[in-house]
């Protein structure tokens, strides 16, 4: 993926590929709010997030993404990295994780969605689609 070849501190390689693969199923295109996800901007934000959380959490998040990309598909009898699976297969896997009765499995979805959903639902065009007033205080911010 071209986006993942760009030099960044943390969100590169499998981290970048896995986040993009998850984001495509967590925020499927077209349904409901018809605003596409800007994947390049998402990865920049994930890079910032990984900086902000500090080294220990960063390690665990990267470990979790590694697990999702390389080991999780095997548990579902798929022998390719998560980021190379078809959309339908990824959607099924993530949905089953989301619906799992076991909290530690469900936690995989919760933690990864924290990387993606707040970013998407803070973009102006998405907020406009929802009807949430955008930039109510922006003039003040620009003055600063």
């Amino acid at each position: 993926m071209k986006i993942c070849k760009k030099k960044r501190r943390f969100a590169r390689g499998f981290v970048c590929r896995t986040v993009i693969a998850i984001s495509e199923v967590v925020i499927p295109e077209g349904e409901g709010i018809d605003v596409p996800l800007d994947k390049e901007e998402l990865i920049e934000e994930v890079d910032t997030f990984l900086l902000l959380v500090g080294p220990l959490k960063r390690f665990f998040i990267k470990l979790l993404l590694w697990f999702i990309n390389y080991l999780l598909p095997i548990l579902f009898l798929r022998f390719k990295p998560f980021s190379r699976l078809s959309f339908e297969t990824r959607y099924r896997i993530m949905k089953r994780i989301h619906d799992s009765k076991i909290f530690s499995i469900r936690g995989i979805y919760i933690l990864t969605s924290m990387l993606i959903l707040p970013y998407y639902y803070s973009r102006n065009n998405v907020l406009n689609a929802i009807g949430y007033p955008v930039n109510r205080f922006k003039s003040k911010s620009e003055a600063a």
Binding site: I27, E31, Y109, P118, Y121, I130
Partner: peptide, 20 residues
């Protein structure tokens, strides 16, 4: 919306529908 999105009991397209 950015904070509520991670607190909704939905997945994928259903989150988008709820957010509408």
């Amino acid at each position: 919306p950015s904070m509520l999105s991670i607190a909704l009991p939905s997945f994928g397209k259903d989150i988008k529908k709820m957010m509408l």
